[in-house]
Amino acid sequence: MSTENEANHNGDGAEAPENLPDRRGSERLAAPVVRTGMFGTTTTGDTSGYGGLRVRGSAPAASSRPFTDPEDPRTADFDRVADDLEAALGEGAGAVERIVVDRGEITFHVRRDALVEVARALRDDPALRYELCTGVSGVHFPDDTDRELHAVYHFRSITHNSQIRVETTCPDADPHVPSIVSVYPTNDWHERETWDFFGIVFDGHPGLTRIQMPDDWHGHPQRKDYPLGGIPVEYRGATVPPPDERRSYK
């Protein structure tokens, strides 16, 4: 083992110029660049003279066919799934607002009123057979006006060994999303948790009560407008503010 370790210590040539820490990984930067400059500084805060960092483009808003990229094996069944879902929904296919393929994962953005229908099609259609729903995850985007609250579902098909994501949104003023517990009973607690943390009301849930927080808790703590709630920590006379009130590196 020790020889192996030593070889490893000297083996990969940290002194070679192309491997110096400030050179390595430059090929990743070939991707589209949306912004250059120091780590996120928007003002003239860059006093280092090191402006090499480039920020790549954000996730695509929507993808178009074909969804299957022959170069990427992870996307192999995306075209088939999209076709099958469209066929299964029939006239209701308009419920799928857009489809995003990003980083080898496919996301169906679904109108909230059609969510149960889509879930039922995903579970029951023989060509789809997404037997397993791995829960719902809430995400809060305060700046995404009228679509502030997102509910993200992941479905897994054991029959076809496939995995997709379904995303639906609701405005903060009307935080209602239909519950899919009637289709996937496993989502019972997951929806309660998302209600507890984000305040999304899942209509039709058999018993939508708080699950993690105490019953008399006020607010929904994992929303972005809810403070982290830490206290200042005093140590030998000096005080450190809680993490969300500290000076932040942007």
Partner: peptide, 30 residues
């Protein structure tokens, strides 16, 4: 040894990487 006596840029880079961390392109993954 490299960041303290070899390269000023590497020192700055190390400091930035450790204090701020790296940036992750926008999107979601499961």
């Amino acid at each position: 040894a490299h960041i303290m006596s070899g390269s000023m840029e590497a020192l700055i880079h190390h400091f930035k990487l450790v204090t701020e961390g790296f940036r992750v392109p926008a999107g979601q993954a499961y």
